[in-house]
Amino acid sequence: MKVTEMVKERRIISIEIIPPKRGEDVENIYRTLDKLMNYDISFISITRHPVEVDYIEYEDKIVKVHKVKRPGTLGLTAALMNRYRIDVVPHLICVGMSKFEMEDMLIDLDIMGVDNVFVIRGETASSVENYKQVRC
Rank of each mutant, 00 (worst) to 15 (best):
M1A: 15
V3A: 15
T4M: 06
M6L: 15
M6R: 12
V7M: 14
K8Q: 14
E9T: 15
R11V: 14
R11N: 15
R11H: 15
I12H: 11
I13G: 08
S14E: 03
S14T: 09
I15V: 12
I18A: 12
K21N: 12
K21W: 02
E24D: 06
E24R: 06
E24W: 04
V26S: 04
N28H: 11
Y30Q: 06
K35H: 06
N38F: 04
N38T: 10
N38P: 02
Y39V: 00
S45L: 00
I46E: 01
T47Y: 13
P50C: 04
E52F: 07
E59C: 00
D60Q: 00
I62Q: 05
I62L: 01
K67S: 08
V68N: 10
K69M: 15
P71F: 07
P71L: 01
G72P: 04
M81N: 02
Y84Q: 10
Y84D: 09
D87K: 08
D87S: 15
G96L: 07
G96M: 05
M97A: 04
F100G: 06
F100V: 13
E101K: 07
E103M: 11
D104L: 05
M105Y: 11
L106H: 07
D108Y: 05
L109G: 11
I111M: 07
V117F: 13
G122C: 00
E123F: 09
T124H: 05
S127Y: 00
V128L: 01
Y131I: 07
Y131L: 09
K132W: 07
K132P: 01
Q133P: 01
